[in-house]
Every structure is written in C-alpha cells, then in structure tokens.
Computed example of a mutant assay.
Amino acid sequence: MTPARRGQWQTAAEVLTQVSRRPGITRAAVARELRLSTSSATEVTAKLRDVRLLAEAPAPSQGRGRPTTLLRAHPQGPVALALDLRQSNWRSAVVALDGTFLSQTDRRHRTRRAEVVLDHLHRAVREAQEQYGERLQAVGLAVPGTLRDNRLLLQASAPEWFEMDLEIVTVGTGVSLLAGNDATLSGVAEARTGAAVGAGTALHLIIEAGIGGTLLIDGVPVLGASGAAGEFGHTPFGDRSRQCLCGARGCWNLEIDGRALAHHLHDPDPDDPHAYTEAILQRTDPTARRAVERVATAIAAGIAGLVNSHDPDVVTLGGLAVPLRAAAPEAFEATYLEGLMTFRRPTPPPIRTAAHQADGPLRGAAALALDHLTSEQAVATWAAAQ
C-alpha cells in the first residue's frame, strides 16, 4: 500500500476513530468534532458504507434543523477479539467497530500451566476466525503482569506464567496481536467511556494482587521506553526492610493488598491475596478493622505521592481499592490530603470509583484492538480488499 493510497483514507480513519470511542455518535457530531462541512461528512460516510465499514440509521429527532444519522459498525465489517487473562479465569468478547460486544464468554482455568492457558486462548482465536473469517482483523489481550514485546515478564501471583510468550495466542492465524497490561487497559477504558472521560491527564489505579495502573494523557496511556510503565506497585512507598518478588525493596505492593493485611494480622502470606482481602473485609473485629485501616491509609498516602508527581485532573480507582477505601473513608481522606503538597489541598484532584469494574480490562483490550482497526493503514488495507 503506497503512502498516497493510504492518504486517501485519513479523514475516514478519523471518522471511524470517533465512532469506536463514542458509541452512538451521530454524523453531525462527528462533523463538529472533526470540523468537517456537512457535505464532506456525508461524502466520507458514504465512502465508508461502500466498503462495509459503516452503517447509518436515522437519529431521533432533535426538533428543528437538518436530520442526521447514527453511525454504527457495518454488519459485514471488520471485528476484533478482546481477551482478558486473569488469575482464575479468562474472558473473551467479539467487538464491532463501534465498540459493540457481539458475543461474550467467561471460562475458569482448570490449570494455570502456561502451555494450557495459551492453548485455550489460541483456540478462542481460531473459533472466532472460523465464525467471522477474514472479518477478524485483530486480537486485543489484557494480561496481569509486566509486558515487553508480547512477553509476560513478571506475574507475582502466578509464577507459572513468568516469561510466557503471548505470540502463541495468534500464531498461524495471520491476525494481529496487541497485548497490554490489564491495569493499563482498565485505565484506557475509563478514559474512553468511564469515570475519566474528558480528563486531559488522568491517573488510574487498580488493586488485585498488588497495585497497577497507568497515567493517561488525552486518553492515551504513557507506556515508557519499553512499554512497561505503570508499575506503580513497585515504587518505594513501603518498608525498605522487605523485599518484593520483583527484586526491589520497599515496594508499595507489600503495603496495600492481602499480603499487607496478613502481615499486620501475623498470618502467613496468602496464596490468593485477592480472596484473602475479601475475607478480611467481611470481618468486624477491631483487629481486622485496624489492619484494614492501615492498608487503606497506605493506599491513600501513595496516591498523594503520585498526584504530587504527575499532576492529574482526576484519579480513578478500581478493583479492591474501592472496598478498602470504603472500609476506612475518614482515615483514607485525611491521609490523602495530608500527603498532598500545600498548594494542591484547596482543590485536590477528585478520586472517583471506576465505572468499568469487572469488565475494565476486557473493554480496554477491545479499545486497543479497535485503535488498530481504525488506523489509516488498516482502513486502507480493508478498503482495498473489498
């Protein structure tokens, strides 16, 4: 595909990006957002209809003014497969260009052996390819660990997955694989359609086994030099006498999840920090309440440090961070404010509960794949094949 040929689809790709990021958007709204004339918007959408990328339906009447249409994915257009790999299960969804989930499944692991897990994900890709044929153009994959070049480098609570090569998921299919950290992709979901919509700079944090997250600028995550940014749990906000499984000392992770609760309660490290945290949160005895408050304030203190460093408009919280904060709200709020630089305290960045809790990583994986499908090159390649 020559650069000149791809350039013919630049505006069309921008239109599709709007459709994928703002489900239910109208043609008039796209025209306003992209500063297109009415005739240009009509021409571009007609062009996209012709190559089976967009479909249009009449929009509800808004009173006087020219009627417009809702822009939707073409029923025969390209689709993506979103996959969300977790400690105990994995989820999948086939996604249309407008972000609609066409199908969704949730399956538990029978074993966490890497080769078995990867085989199940690979079969999910094969099944989607059998159903959708060449319409399946990309796979977005959310994984619970540090990534580099589609290889899972660190997974503290599932050592069986260390150095797991994710390329196996799409090997032999010809479908593009786009993998990302689950916490990072949860943040993408919040910035696109959740609690951080409209924020220029957003900080997203999620606690499962440890804490992860991402800093997003205009909805785009800051990935770092090698794609491994957002490992906030490995900042030295904790006790320097304790060593983390990552190899560093004093990691924040050791202060904010089930391992921290077990440490405060003089219990052995839990095999499943997530389940252990949920169990402790159900207890009402003073000892458990004190342990929960210590963890909640450790979370708040770290958030204040990150706010001082990154200056976000908003902070969004997901996973176990939400019930831990709710279990000690006054202590959490006081610690957060005390940790902020003085000039920030009158108008501190709000800390909001994430809108996409259970499905944040899956929706983020879908967004990652849709960003690929709505790129100028992908649009031009699809159009040339029609």
Rank of each mutant, 00 (worst) to 15 (best):
P3R: 14
R5M: 14
Q8S: 14
A12R: 00
A13R: 11
T17A: 15
P23Q: 09
G24Q: 08
A28V: 15
A31W: 11
L34H: 09
R35W: 10
T38F: 06
T42P: 02
T45A: 07
L48K: 06
D50Q: 15
L71Q: 06
A73P: 04
H74E: 03
P78D: 02
A82G: 08
L83W: 02
D84G: 08
S92R: 08
V95D: 08
G99A: 04
R110K: 10
R113S: 09
E115R: 12
V116K: 00
L118P: 10
D119T: 14
H122C: 00
R126G: 02
E134C: 08
G145N: 07
T146N: 00
N150F: 10
N150M: 07
L154G: 01
A156Q: 06
D165A: 15
L166E: 06
T170M: 09
V171S: 08
L178K: 08
D182Y: 12
G187F: 07
A189T: 06
R192A: 12
T193D: 14
E208Q: 02
T214A: 15
G233D: 04
H234Y: 13
G238F: 00
S241I: 12
Q243A: 14
C244P: 02
C244S: 10
G247N: 13
L254D: 09
A260T: 07
H263R: 15
H263L: 13
H266R: 10
D267Y: 14
E278R: 13
V292T: 09
A296D: 05
I299F: 06
I299Y: 01
I299S: 03
G305Q: 14
S309I: 11
V315C: 04
L317Q: 05
A321H: 04
A326P: 03
A328V: 01
E330F: 05
T335Q: 05
L337V: 00
R345Q: 09
P349R: 03
A354W: 10
H356D: 01
G360R: 01
R363A: 12
L373C: 00
Q377N: 03
Q377H: 00
A383M: 05
Q386E: 13
